[in-house]
Design a protein around this nucleic acid. Structure first.
Length: 105
DNA sequence: GGAATGACCATGG
DNA sequence: ACCATGGCCATTC
């Protein structure tokens, strides 16, 4: 896995505006590595604390939280809600509205 | 080199 | 809508 991948993903992540969210699959694809969603997730997991990357704006497919139960998930949800992202009854985010990049529908 | 693992995704029951 | 199964790709043992 070339360092390019990590760099690209982080760059894209930095482009995600506040109040918007993206998914692992999307980041991987935009980074030029389709179907590498797992690695995006793992990459973010390895990120040092000092890195200024809004990883909390990254959700799983369909806007689901990646690691429910974890205290991080709780914090993550709060962060997103503070930015104006809304969670539906299922605890998921409507990617058609808050998804990034804009979903053409 | 082979097997197991992982912040996942899509599909089927 | 929820749980189970199969497929993905790269890293690690």
């Amino acid at each position: 896995m070339p360092p390019e991948f990590a760099r690209r993903v982080l760059a894209l992540l930095a482009k995600v505006p506040p109040g918007r969210v993206t998914t692992y699959g999307t980041l991987a694809e935009l980074a030029g590595y389709p179907r590498h969603s797992r690695h995006v997730g793992h990459l973010l997991g390895k990120l040092p604390e000092g890195v200024a990357a809004p990883w909390y704006r990254v959700l799983g497919a369909g806007g689901r939280l990646s690691r429910p139960g974890s205290h991080h998930a709780d914090w993550q949800r709060l962060q997103l809600e503070e930015e104006g992202v809304e969670f539906n009854a299922s605890g998921k985010v409507d990617l058609r509205i808050f998804g990034w990049p804009d979903q053409m529908v």
